[in-house]
Design a protein around this nucleic acid. Structure first.
Lengths: 335, 335
DNA sequence: GCGCGCTCTGTAAGCGCTTTCATTTGTTTC
DNA sequence: GAAACAAATGAAAGCGCTTACAGAGCGCGC
């Protein structure tokens, strides 16, 4: 069944049917109603391919990430897809997996599907790409369709970013620990993203401002390395290095810190305060429950999709939105 | 740039270019090489719409779930997408969110995109659908494209299922608890899926076989209700009902059980054994760490996508694959 | 009454590809 | 060497839609 059948049923030409479908206003009301009735009666659905060929759009948006099974990203993907679908956009999901160097390849793949926009989330690729350190491929892609970055920053005419002020959030959290008298704070560091860089600098800046000697230690872990985080702390402990607080760039790593403390009879939060990041479900699973920084995935995604829909509708949207993250106090910090 | 440009460059007709692209064998080697060179030099990518119009396929598969942010589903979605992309199939993700009654609507939506197959995962919809209790819409959909169910069972010519033997896994785990002398086992029950039904019946069957009087209690919770699970156990506790083990249909609920025990000074596993389900990252976050049933998401997804690719290639595939799940012993059970 | 501009509708030309069918060329076979 | 066949290629007809363009019908002012 195709547009022709509908036109026959309604007694009009296919052009008129097409106009009705596309909301073209130059159709008489009576005709419109007749066509709509025919469409409904026949249960007609336009063929997306033919439609795409004509309009060169398929109401589809590409979502690119490296690991959609990461709790944070999974949430982001869920909200992005959900909000977009409210406006009848479908989402093509594309995960590069453990090989972030594939971002260029996947970008090309997803563009070849003629998506109307691409959303990069996780932004694992924004920094430290040996082969592509200036993210050329994103800039290239932005020549074809608008690009949206979740927690990434890139300047460009057709690039729109929504970021959390990770620097500020970590800075303030560190300050809080410092006000509590903590002087030997370990920062557990994961990722190679802009976001993780910002978190780290928020941390070091706070320590510098407070004039705390550079006794901090930080390490470089994977985002899911609970046990590596724990071992790392143990190695510090074995060296008898003082330690009275731990900040982590991911809740997973903070979980490792909790495990470390429990195993060594270190009291939380009296002897060791711990702060995680993401305020994920993990923060509620430990005992004591984790204090964690919440970057409001849902709202961030809403902002991003709002921008995206605006741009696709031909309206303006801000190229850069910065949102604040909040510290959610639970049991691993004092107060 | 289009197929015509390539044909000009290679000095052949567009038909020949098309044949090269589609791997049609009746092209002379020398011609093929010439065309391939032209394609490469021009960086040509076929237009998917035009291609779709001709072939009526877009190498795209729809993945339908209710909540892709659920840890288990997020993992499944990740693997499904990843495995499919290895074979150049893209994935359109579609989440119904909290309204499982929308499954019909979303199914229609996704079919209108002319996907080559639909994968239902999570299968929250397989049972207890007031309006659609016999899953007609899936059967209907299977008339258009092959349907694949992850942890769902439905008979149909064009329907292919991969399920875990949840019944067996829970049954055996319950037996283990019974062998440990547990007689007052609480089952924390979530979901309305086939899967959750099977888990429950595995549990009750085990108790019946062991001749344990029907002193069990189970409740109906949401899959993320850590605190509801905890409160529920507390209510039993307050009633002085005996309880020496807890089994949960989700790790989240088992986490609630751990919290309950810790808060009331109940020793794990001596006084209370706890078994979760999914063997998710949550199982490693608690202290003590959770014993949990692992249903091998990755392998299950591999099996499903293998079947899917076979069917799409016109080959046969089993309509029903049953896989076994394994108990991963950690610290919340004896041994 | 005529021309003008407006609204509504139809005709037909694409969009970029696949594929049938016909044609050409080369290879056997007797 | 002619007939029969196979292999390689091109011309052209779609696929189902959008849309530029043209035309029909109508009301209006002069």
């Amino acid at each position: 069944m195709n547009i022709y059948d509908v036109s026959q049923k309604a007694g009009v030409s296919i052009a008129t049917v097409s106009r009705v479908i596309n909301g073209n206003r130059s159709v008489a009301d009576s005709t419109r109603r007749r066509v709509e009735a025919a469409i409904k009666e026949l249960g007609y659905e336009p063929n997306v391919f033919a439609r795409g060929l004509g309009l060169n759009t398929m109401q589809t948006i590409g979502i690119l990430c490296n690991d959609s099974s990461d709790i944070y990203i999974a949430n982001a993907v869920y909200y992005l897809q959900h909000f977009l679908s409210e406006h009848h956009y479908d989402s093509i999901l594309c995960c590069t997996g453990n090989n972030p160097d594939d971002f260029r390849k996947y970008t090309k793949m997803i563009l070849s599907k003629r998506v109307d926009a691409v959303i990069y989330t996780g932004s694992q690729f924004i920094l430290n790409h040996p082969e592509d350190h200036d993210n050329n491929y994103i800039v290239d892609a932005s020549k074809e369709v608008p690009i949206f970055l979740l927690n990434g920053m890139l300047e460009g005419e057709n690039i729109y970013c929504v970021v959390n002020d990770d620097h500020l959030a970590v800075h303030d959290a560190a300050m809080k620990l410092i006000r509590h008298g903590r002087r030997h704070i370990v920062y557990l560091y994961s990722g190679t993203t802009l976001s993780s860089q910002n978190k780290l600098s928020g941390f070091t800046d706070a320590l510098n401002e407070a004039g705390i000697p550079n006794r901090i230690a930080y390490t470089h872990l994977g985002p899911k390395d609970i046990y590596a985080a724990k071992s790392y702390l143990e190695s510090l402990y074995d060296q008898n290095l003082p330690m009275d607080a731990v900040m982590a760039s991911e809740d997973t790593l903070a979980v490792g810190a909790v495990k470390f403390a429990e195993e060594h009879g270190i009291r939380i939060p009296e002897d060791l305060e711990i702060i995680g990041y993401n305020n994920s479900i993990l923060a509620e699973c430990t005992e004591p429950e984790l204090t964690s920084i919440d970057n409001h995935v849902e709202k961030v995604c809403r902002t991003l999709t709002d921008n995206c829909l605006k741009v696709l509708a031909g309206e303006d949207a801000p190229h850069k939105v910065i949102r604040t993250a909040d510290l959610i106090s639970r049991e691993t910090t004092v107060n």
